[in-house]
């Protein structure tokens, strides 16, 4: 059988390997070995996982220089939101003082909850739209609207009317996703490095658009508290020291301008509300360059006194503004 097989199957023999071929073979393997060993040494390390160093950013100061010619705060009463916003900004020197041609502007309304405008748990959409149009008129290169919502963000932006209003005013809406946060050093007493919505690192100017609301833990949620919305992560831990957290946030985010929505005010069951019985019309818009004074002023709508709200005195101590707004240059007007 073996003999048969030998006949039927051609026997293949390796071509004889000359010295030259042998050297080439060994040389190639030696080369490969060198690459393996060199690569191994190059990649060798004491760190189990190679990471790109995470860059920790800091927020820039978005404020414009102070100007004594204009009041620090402008309170406007009226019926039409856009008229009130224009009047309030005009009193502070006009938007050209704050927004320059080509600026990328970020509007930060409160879009925390899946609530409709009349429930007053979110900033009113007319205010957001009016501010966006003003920025466009001032020559802003881009106007963004963003917030980090507590309820489902898609529903919050849709049902608050803010998404539609912003888009209609040619602003862009950014609903931050998981990847939209950058490690940022807040430099605070309790707030150190936290994930911050990346838009805050990409724009030139930031305008705070809060709404006056009752809040169960801090007493009120006004302009300084509105900065919770820059943070991602487990920000509900901030409740463990809410007053220091609010001051830390206000110290880290210094906006160009703040325009407070006191058209509808959520007087009870804040910050979520839900019943129209909790809401009362105050028909007021307030523009301010001093968040402490603004928040202190707005306590009137909630029947609170500054002494009841610890973060106000703490913020004043930190040099963020004045609790006694009565001492400041304030304008108060009525428009139709």
């Amino acid at each position: 059988m073996t003999a048969e097989r030998k006949k039927t199957r051609p026997i293949k023999v390796q071509p004889e390997m000359g010295r030259r071929q042998f050297m080439v073979r060994v040389g190639t393997l030696a080369g490969v070995s060198t690459v393996v060993a060199g690569g191994g040494l190059w990649l060798h390390g004491d760190e189990p996982v190679r990471h790109r160093a995470v860059e920790v950013l800091t927020l820039k100061d978005f404020r414009v220089p102070a100007n004594g010619l204009y009041p620090v705060m402008a309170v406007v009463h009226g019926e039409n939101v856009e008229t009130m916003v224009r009047e309030a900004v005009q009193k502070l020197g006009g938007l050209a003082r704050f927004i320059h041609k080509g600026d990328r502007v970020l509007l930060k309304p409160n879009v925390g909850w899946d609530r409709q405008p009349q429930q007053a748990a979110n900033t009113g959409p007319e205010l957001v739209a009016a501010m966006a149009r003003l920025c466009q008129e001032a020559g802003a290169a881009a106007v963004w609207v963003t917030d980090v919502s507590l309820n489902d963000p898609g529903r919050c932006f849709a049902r608050s009317g803010i998404e539609a209003a912003a888009l209609q005013a040619n602003a862009q809406v950014m609903i931050p996703g998981k990847e939209d946060f950058l490690a940022t050093d807040m430099g605070g007493t309790v707030l150190r490095v936290w994930p911050v919505n990346r838009l805050f690192h990409a724009v030139d100017k930031v305008i705070n658009l809060p709404i006056v609301k009752h809040h169960s833990l801090s007493g009120c949620t006004l302009s300084m508290k509105n900065w919770y919305g820059v943070l991602g992560g487990r920000r509900n831990q901030l409740h463990q020291d809410i007053h220091t957290s609010i001051v830390d946030l206000a110290a880290a985010v210094r906006p160009t301008l703040t325009v407070m929505d006191a058209v509808r005010v959520l007087k009870h069951n804040g910050p979520t509300g839900g019943s129209l019985d909790d809401v009362q019309k105050e028909n007021t818009v307030i523009a301010s360059l001093d968040e402490v004074a603004l928040d202190s002023y707005c306590l009137n709508y909630l029947a609170l006194r500054p002494e009841q709200i610890p973060f106000l005195a703490m913020a004043e101590k930190r040099g963020l503004g004045q609790v006694r707004w009565q001492n400041l240059n304030i304008s108060e007007t009525q428009v139709s």
């Binding site: 920790v56 946060f181 490690a183 309790v190 994930p195 991602g232 992560g233 487990r234 020291d241």
Partner: peptide, 17 residues
């Protein structure tokens, strides 16, 4: 950096989001 409960015990560390 995410599985936490206390605000102040842990020194700030970079978050992944």
């Amino acid at each position: 950096s995410t599985n936490r409960m206390l605000l102040t015990t842990h020194p700030g560390t970079p978050f992944s989001g």
